[in-house]
Amino acid sequence: MIVEDNKKIRDELCVFLSRNGYECEAPEDFKDIISHILSSTPHLVLLDINLPVFDGYHICREIRKKSDMPLIVVTSRDTEFDELVAMNLGADDFVTKPYNTQILLARIETVLRRAYRESKQERLVCGDFIINPSKSAFEYLGRSTELTRNEIKILTCLFEKKGSIVSRDELMRYLWDSELFVDDNTLTVNMTRLRRKLEEAGLSGVIETRRGQGYIML
């Protein structure tokens, strides 16, 4: 659920998040917002601080009295102090505006994973091919191959965008978002090794190079 009073941001966030596989609800009336949030029990609340009627801190406190649903505070106030207040009130995370959308997605994912760990198994499956990021390995026809941190990230990124071209820049940014600050050469080396490992497992040609554009997983 998105609790945000700016209509444009609300709408665009909805579009953005739905496109990334989340269902969104964005209430427009803030008078009974607290009971509304509590009664509709969303999987996660994105909460703005500057709101009409009640401010976000108040809403956060009231929700925490009754529920521990995952809650991310989104605000343009960005001092340590604001972060501290939000965390003390029981928010699971704190994102400052104007957020990098990729970072926002990553935060949402982390908070959701933490909250619903049991119910959601973190595996990417496609037929006999299974990627297991938590073990840093993939399985094919029951045989498991271990991968390095960089390799598993590259594989995951390509898998998530299966069927479409991923540029080298995009791949690098994906890796950087996980604190793996690889450069161009390293990416090439990692790519070669990953392909070799896939080949050895009997998966040759799943990653194709499109000259001047990037890579694609088929």
Binding site: K8, I9, E12, L13, S76, K97, P98, Y99, T101
Partner: peptide
């Protein structure tokens, strides 16, 4: 920051 945020999202 609010209009910048919405511009970025758009």
């Amino acid at each position: 920051k609010t209009p910048i945020s919405s511009s970025k999202l758009i």
